[in-house]
Design a binder for these strands. Structure first.
Lengths: 107, 107
DNA sequence: ACTATACGCAACTGAATGGTTGCGCGTCCG
DNA sequence: CGGACGCGCAACCATTCAGTTGCGTATAGT
């Protein structure tokens, strides 16, 4: 488990605004910075910054086609985060332990 | 799912130092601020602040006995975080979807 | 009783960060 | 070709926050 990657991942998820962005992108399937900014009280650049941060964390993937760059969800890193939580909490929580076994089985 | 609680939770987990603290407490079973600060290049107050932040997020529970307050892990909130990740990523990742089904079954 | 220990609270400082504005560059379309 | 659209980069500002120092208080041990 790469600790450095987990750092970026959790830090990215730590901000409510960024987490909300991930939710919206997930709901839409994909989206651009300007599209997302249209429904938010912030500028496009602010959203773009957050999106690049999320992309750096591995949560989103940017694909530039023509003059627009679309972002979509790449849920792989979420598994690492889940794995960390299970590793920490399994000892004290039976449901997390069960989840850990389920995760292990699927590997 | 309480969004407010998730905010505190992810924000608490977002800091590498704090996450490391959770790991150490989990490994020891329980610990005090001074104990943890002894192995770290920071002061006790710094650690104490982080511990109270983690306690506010619901990840740790403080128990004062005599003149010392011991912290231990309360993994319940981690399930909420896992649930959020599953909700976001299940559509794009079969393993997360499977995890979601497993989580649902256990409810 | 006296000292050492362990803690919490408050004020301060420096760094990180979210947001803004301004600008320049590539891309689509009339 | 020329204007509009979409994006990224850079500088700047305000806020937040982690960490420190200092102090007061309660508990444990001698």
């Amino acid at each position: 488990m790469d600790a450095r990657r987990l750092d970026d991942l959790f830090a990215a998820l730590g901000d409510p605004g960024r987490r909300s962005l991930v939710e919206t992108v997930a709901a839409r399937g994909d989206a651009t910075a300007t599209e997302l900014a249209a429904d938010l009280p912030v500028t496009r650049q602010a959203v773009a910054k957050q999106l690049t941060a999320l992309a750096d964390a591995g949560l989103l993937r940017a694909t530039r086609t023509g003059r627009e760059t679309r972002y979509k969800v790449t849920p792989g890193p979420l598994e690492d985060a889940v794995a960390w939580m299970v590793a920490v909490g399994a000892r004290w929580d039976e449901r997390l332990a069960a989840l850990g076994r389920s995760l292990e089985r699927r590997r």
